[in-house]
Amino acid sequence: MIADVSRTSLRAGVEKAVADGLPQISDPSSVAPADARALSKLFLERLTVLEEGTQDHQYARNTLIEMNMSLVRFAARRFRDRGDDMDDIVQVGTIGLIKAIDRFDISREVEFTTFAVPYIVGEIKRFFRDTTWAVHVPRRLQERRVELARARDELSSRLGRAPKVAELAALMDLSEPEVVEAQVASNGYTASSLDAALTTDDGDEGETVLADFIGAPDPGMELIEDLRSLAPLVIELSERDRRLLHLRYVEELTQAQIGEIMGCTQMHVSRLLSRTIARLRAGMLQDGSAG
């Protein structure tokens, strides 16, 4: 017969279970950690002989999970300074606990808590490494972000101001470029929506959104690039061709006016301009294909 174990009679229930089977625990999450260790050993032993998929197997496995949630919460507290929701961290740590229960070998003389904690911590670390970063960065920089946050908090508390890069580098035993690299990488941890409303200095949220501050393509930049590419080609022209271009495109004279100044016909000016522009265009295209 299965014993009904309450909080006050839990130890008596364990003794009864040795004779009759697994105790029926109405609220496994309320089991104290010390009692959970003793009960976990009993449940793990029974789990090895129970047929998978049966109601008894499911009860034993689910009870083990609920009884050992204190291990998950203990491990999750190590990550509370990362700014993520603790419920999410505990949920991920529970996956590690389940893996530990499924892979635990009762024949090994190892405490279940000793075996389970690395699984729980490893699952949480994997979660931070693979899913929480908005931009993928190398693992060493992900870990350095946590070190940087701790160093910044410690120095801010000690100095009463935001620490400088040199001060962070001294505390973290890193070079200043390595600290700057970690700071830049930390920006990839979270991302903001372009439609998110920005908060003003007085704390009010206005109608301005982040997208309003993103620059648009400037056609003038392309013009600058073209002029820089064109300059050496113009220098290679003859003095007459350079003067011709100056009169036409700087002083903006007509071809007839240019012909009068240079002592030639308007038709000849047109041919000279066409030939010079074709030469410059060919040089620009050649320079673009080479780049």
Rank of each mutant, 00 (worst) to 15 (best):
1 M>P: 06
2 I>Y: 05
6 S>H: 13
13 G>H: 04
14 V>K: 10
15 E>N: 09
15 E>S: 10
17 A>W: 06
22 L>H: 05
25 I>K: 12
28 P>L: 06
34 A>E: 13
35 D>A: 14
37 R>H: 08
40 S>G: 15
42 L>W: 04
42 L>C: 09
44 L>Q: 03
45 E>Q: 03
46 R>E: 12
46 R>D: 12
47 L>H: 15
48 T>Q: 12
49 V>F: 09
54 T>Q: 05
58 Q>K: 06
61 R>D: 14
61 R>C: 11
63 T>Q: 12
63 T>A: 11
64 L>C: 14
64 L>V: 03
68 N>D: 02
69 M>N: 13
71 L>S: 04
74 F>C: 08
75 A>E: 06
81 D>N: 00
81 D>K: 02
82 R>H: 03
85 D>S: 10
86 M>I: 11
87 D>C: 02
89 I>F: 01
90 V>Y: 05
91 Q>T: 15
92 V>E: 14
92 V>S: 05
95 I>Y: 12
98 I>A: 08
101 I>K: 09
110 V>Y: 03
116 A>G: 11
118 P>N: 02
120 I>D: 03
120 I>N: 00
122 G>Y: 03
122 G>L: 01
124 I>D: 01
125 K>P: 05
129 R>F: 05
134 A>R: 06
135 V>M: 11
138 P>D: 05
140 R>D: 11
142 Q>W: 07
142 Q>S: 06
145 R>T: 09
146 V>Y: 09
152 R>M: 08
153 D>T: 14
157 S>G: 08
159 L>G: 10
161 R>V: 00
164 K>P: 00
165 V>Q: 00
168 L>N: 00
176 E>T: 15
178 E>V: 00
183 Q>H: 01
185 A>P: 01
188 G>M: 04
192 S>W: 07
193 S>I: 03
194 L>M: 13
197 A>D: 07
199 T>Q: 11
202 D>F: 05
205 E>M: 11
209 V>K: 15
211 A>V: 10
211 A>R: 13
215 G>V: 04
219 P>Q: 04
219 P>D: 14
220 G>T: 09
225 E>A: 14
228 R>L: 12
230 L>N: 07
232 P>C: 07
240 R>A: 13
245 L>W: 09
245 L>V: 07
254 T>M: 03
257 Q>E: 15
262 M>L: 11
264 C>D: 15
267 M>Q: 15
267 M>T: 12
268 H>K: 14
269 V>E: 02
278 A>Y: 10
278 A>T: 14
280 L>R: 01
282 A>K: 07
284 M>K: 04
285 L>V: 15
287 D>R: 12
288 G>S: 11
288 G>I: 08
290 A>N: 04
